[in-house]
Amino acid sequence: MEAPSPSLIAVILAAGTSSRMGKNKMLLRLGGESMVRRVTRSVLGAGLEQVWVVVGRDSTQVGTEVADLGVRLVENPRYAQGMGTSFRAAVEAFPKDLEAAMFVLGDQPFLTAGMYQAVLEAYRIHRPPLVIAQFGGVKAPPHIFRRDLFAYLGQNKDEGAKKVVAQHKAEAIVVELPESALFDIDTPEEYRRALERIAGGE
């Protein structure tokens, strides 16, 4: 007998080109481990049944970084065309009865398991079409999308889910997270600042 499908999974988007960094930021070392491994461990700490990692650039190396963590790798061969292709790669692989999915950026190393849990808890209590994280005044992933929104994700290959979030924000539950956790790493300067934060104990 096959195991029942999970009702909610997390998808870590780790397939991008890292063009502004000049090298694959998923493989950058942070506190003795790669960024993709650090983020994946935090997501796993939230207690989800399944965590998926969408890989593209350097997919073998990125996959190796998380191979022992029990995650599922989803290959996105079109990753160079934009983030929307990673959303589509995940959605097209979803079980047909999947209830909802939490999408996570692979370059947000200061989000903790507790923060992901807060977003998940908001969904489990209210079951809205959309849960949005807000850091101070900025709305940013992680976001949870209910199944009825899956078809709209990744329709524009160049962008992620901004349009879907904008169109459904009136139906969304917003979860406030610490502003300091919103720290994407896109450039060498941001990487240097991240290393300083970690050296300082974060």
Rank of each mutant, 00 (worst) to 15 (best):
S19D: 12
G154N: 08
I144G: 10
L177R: 12
Y191N: 02
T60F: 06
V66R: 06
R193W: 00
W52L: 02
K96C: 02
S86Q: 08
L130K: 11
A101I: 11
G70E: 14
K157G: 04
A15S: 14
L48P: 08
E99S: 12
G16L: 03
L130S: 09
I185E: 02
A122M: 12
G45L: 04
G154T: 07
S180E: 15
V104T: 09
F145S: 07
L73E: 05
T40R: 11
A67V: 06
E202N: 02
L149A: 07
A14P: 01
S42H: 05
A199W: 06
G16R: 01
A93T: 13
G84D: 04
A93F: 00
R193H: 07
T40A: 07
G136E: 08
F183D: 04
K23N: 10
E2F: 12
L8Q: 11
K139I: 09
K139H: 13
H126A: 15
F183I: 05
V66H: 09
A122W: 13
L13K: 10
I125A: 14
T187S: 11
A140W: 11
E176R: 14
E202S: 11
I9K: 11
G154I: 08
D107T: 10
E202H: 07
L105A: 10
P109H: 01
G56D: 06
G201N: 10
G56L: 05
K163L: 14
P188M: 06
L98M: 10
P4C: 01
T112W: 00
Q61I: 07
S42F: 00
A15F: 03
H143K: 00
P178F: 09
V104C: 10
L105Y: 07
L69F: 02
R41Y: 02
L73N: 06
T112V: 01
T64E: 13
R192T: 08
A113D: 06
L13N: 02
L120V: 13
Q167W: 04
I144D: 09
E189C: 00
I144A: 06
Q50N: 09
M26H: 11
F87W: 15
M115T: 07
G45D: 01
R78Y: 12
R88V: 12
E75I: 10
G31E: 08
L8G: 08
L27E: 04
G16Q: 03
M35A: 01
Q61Y: 04
L182D: 04
V91D: 01
M21E: 04
E179G: 05
P178W: 08
V131W: 10
I173G: 01
R88F: 11
A67D: 08
Q61R: 15
F135G: 11
A100F: 03
E121T: 15
M1F: 08
V164M: 08
F135M: 07
A90M: 03
F110S: 05
T17G: 04
F94K: 08
F150R: 03
S180G: 05
G16K: 02
G63T: 05
G70C: 14
W52K: 00
R192K: 13
K163I: 14
V11P: 07
